[in-house]
Amino acid sequence: MIEALFARYNYVVFALLLGIGLYIVIDDENLVKKVIGLNVFQTGIFLFFITVAVQDGAEPAVTSTGEGTFVNPLPHVLILTAIVVGVSLTALALALVVRIHEEYGSIREDVVVEVLERD
């Protein structure tokens, strides 16, 4: 078991990053931190995909002939898209945070909820 995990070290880190990201999202009262946590969670997924593409002794797939050993290009393409999606989400999330701050004067969820309940 341990050995199997050791040969798959990147995936172990993937699992850890998911856990850390999730923890920030669930627990942190700071809305900006929550968004950071979301990003940690997503980069964990990126690590999964990029690791899938890895091949021992391979090089980036830049070729005109197809000769040679290459990493799998497809996951790279997917993650390029996913990174852009991630930053887009972050931008919108932060805009929402700014909006919430304008309204309630805080970026901490507990404070905002308190303000809301006072209304």
């Binding site: 999330a93 929402l96 945070v97 909006r99 919430i100 304008e102 309204e103 969820e109 905002v112 809301l116």
Partner: peptide, 10 residues
């Protein structure tokens, strides 16, 4: 643009 909706959206 209400604060509540921004919080819910987030």
């Amino acid at each position: 643009g209400t604060g509540r909706s921004a919080l819910a959206a987030l």
